[in-house]
């Protein structure tokens, strides 16, 4: 485990999350560790079920029964968010210093509350502002996220807005108290391509203006290349590789990362078939020991049946593989 530097805003340390379902115990996260520095954008890439969202929910305190954090720690500004003390610390900072944007803007807003009420409640609750001050702040926020005629928007209901506008509203709610860390869980997946670019740009602008740290969860490598400083690749509840974004794209160390990059369609590629990695991720109900990518890896050997070592592949870069 790497030493915790003072300026790490968020530290996740050997996190294990399980879901006790009827079908069996699902191992959603199996020893995930990561750090986010101040002002940094960390991209998290992986397929569905790789544990990206479970990680986000763990940080936001949204893991409900039958889910449970069984091992590990989550520290925000050096203080744990787990345990009874951590939970009360978490209640204080969530929505204020630590905020989250969800994947689907269509369902993420209360359908019967006005836009204004949903933004203002964060400001009133966390900053103790009066209703009038909160309204003023809400107007500023709408302006900041690029919503036209903010005064009339405040009294509208979510169904009167488009998907892109709703996502802007959700971003406005998330940054209402000027948080230090923003977790964006596939913030553009549910949007039209043209709107995707606008929302990404908005997030990038806000980051620069507020010196936010961002965890950007996505399965779109294009988004990662555009917005992130550092990338972590996840697979089957584990970390496979992490590296600064340039290195990851030019010199992927892990065979899974390489496969992922090759699976991205390219315009100049002349072949008429798209590349895909054969096979499917392992079941998380009874996950195999050793490298989780074993079954699908072209370079597998007998030692891959044992847990792979974390090999340093550069500055702030490592890969969990026997064959780097």
């Amino acid at each position: 485990m790497s030493a915790v530097a003072e300026d790490d805003l968020l530290v996740i340390d050997d996190l294990h999350v399980q879901f006790d379902t009827r079908a069996g115990v699902i191992h959603g996260l199996r020893g995930l560790s990561l750090t986010v520095a101040r002002g940094e954008t960390l991209g998290i890439v992986g397929e569905s079920g790789s544990g990206k969202s479970v990680m986000a929910q763990s940080v936001m305190g949204l893991i409900d029964t039958p889910g449970e954090i069984v091992r590990g720690d989550i520290r925000f500004k050096g203080r744990s968010l787990l345990g009874p003390k951590g939970r009360s610390y978490g209640r204080k900072i969530r929505g204020r210093e630590l905020a989250m944007i969800f994947q689907n803007p269509m369902t993420s807003l209360n359908p019967l509350m006005t836009i204004g009420a949903q933004i203002e409640e964060v400001i009133v609750h966390h900053l103790g502002k009066s209703a009038r001050e909160a309204r003023q702040r809400a107007l500023e926020l709408l302006d900041l996220v690029g919503i036209t005629s903010p005064v009339s928007r405040l009294s509208q209901l979510p169904h009167e807005l488009s998907g892109g506008m709703k996502q802007r509203i959700i971003i406005a709610m998330a940054i209402a108290c000027e948080p230090e860390l923003l977790i964006a869980d596939e913030p553009t997946t549910a949007l039209d391509v043209t709107v995707q670019a606008q929302i990404l740009e908005l997030i990038n602008d806000i980051q620069k203006a507020m010196n936010l740290s961002i965890i950007l969860i996505t399965h779109d490598l294009g988004v990662v290349a555009q917005s992130c400083h550092r990338v972590m690749v996840m697979y089957a509840g584990k970390e496979m590789e992490e590296a600064p974004v340039g290195q990851l794209f030019s010199r992927p160390a892990h065979y899974y990362t390489a496969g992922l990059l090759r699976s991205t369609p390219r315009l100049r590629d002349s072949s008429d078939r798209l590349f895909s990695i054969d096979g499917a991720p392992p079941s998380l109900i009874d996950p195999p020991t050793g490298c989780p990518f074993f079954d699908r890896c072209e370079a597998r050997t007998e030692e891959c049946r044992m847990d792979p070592p974390a090999v340093t592949t550069g500055n702030q870069a490592k890969a969990m593989c026997w064959h780097v």
Partner: peptide, 26 residues
């Protein structure tokens, strides 16, 4: 169990407000 309740929780709204304001209204 709806998504907007998750949003309200992520916003740090206390449970009583989530139930009596967000859930109840719906």
């Amino acid at each position: 169990n709806k998504q907007y309740i998750q949003t309200a929780r992520a916003k740090g709204m206390p449970l009583h407000r989530i139930v009596t304001v967000h859930g109840f209204r719906n």
